[in-house]
Design a protein around this nucleic acid. Structure first.
Lengths: 148, 148
DNA sequence: AATAAATTGTTGCATAATGCAACTGATTCA
DNA sequence: TGAATCAGTTGCATTATGCAACAATTTATT
């Protein structure tokens, strides 16, 4: 169907520009916290989850476990994360935010919240729900596809 | 307005998962072509533009010009790009796809086209246009914001 | 016409990320 | 009890990245 082809092309183009813009946003955010992007992403995931193992962190970030191990090492060294032994299974490490890490996380959350509220405020109220639903539709479609 | 706050939070979460999924897709695509992600992105931009200068490539990829210079160097070395002197201004380099680069580009385009058609086919036809419009709305909102 | 300023692209340097394979220690399974 | 599996670490090699300084070229100024 010709229509799907054209729509698929439009989708790709929209996603391409979206990725670029969000990439800029992410890097700017990481810069604000004096961290690398990877460290930022790791801190956010631990912040959102409360506690994570190294393997869980790797899964969430789509990284090799060795990479997750190193980035969490760095964050522990910087005082942003705490590494604890799991009392139930000593193979496991439990990663959680330190007090300082919580501050950093809250700072990032606040800035990102403010940013996206601003973005949302720039959208016609009548279109906001439709926009979100569109993203939810895409999310579901990507889930059911075999690549992601 | 409480509504904007909740909607902003939903937007962030949707974008977070979208970035993760598309990141996996990008890396998988780069792997298919036996290239690094950065090289892939550079080739795609040159392919889409026809010709680009190094600075233009840097702008499109949101990279430092030194990085753009190196990644295009690599692609020239691999025979995917051709670097020519600009006859009008010898400061400029003109980057374009070689025959081999055109093949690589076409392969990537075909695979991505097929993938997104599959994604689109998984969306209810009645929702496709709304989904695309939602992404277009977001795109416009991000453009008018000061960060990107 | 000569000089200064700006632009393009390259290179040196330093930092960081990344994945694979191999390894250690711990737990589970047969 | 020994083998298999799991979690996490480490060595290794590769790649990406941006900043600053530089050379060559073009444009602007005097």
């Amino acid at each position: 169907m010709n229509n799907t082809t054209a729509q698929a092309a439009t989708l790709r183009e929209l996603l391409r520009t979206l990725i670029r813009k969000l990439g800029v946003l992410e890097r700017s955010e990481a810069g604000c916290c004096d961290m690398t992007l990877s460290q930022c992403n790791a801190l956010i995931e631990v912040g959102r989850a409360g506690v994570l193992s190294v393997n869980q962190l790797a899964d969430r970030l789509n990284l090799d476990k060795s990479t997750a191990s190193r980035v969490s090492d760095k964050l522990v060294l910087d005082g942003q994360l705490l590494r604890q032994e799991d009392p139930n299974d000593r193979r496991y490490v439990v990663l959680k935010l330190t007090e300082r890490g919580s501050q950093t996380y809250a700072n990032m959350e606040n800035r990102m919240t403010a940013y996206f509220e601003e973005v949302m405020a720039g959208v016609d109220p009548a279109e906001r729900t439709a926009m979100l639903r569109g993203l939810q539709t895409l999310d579901a479609a990507l889930n059911s596809d075999s690549c992601c």
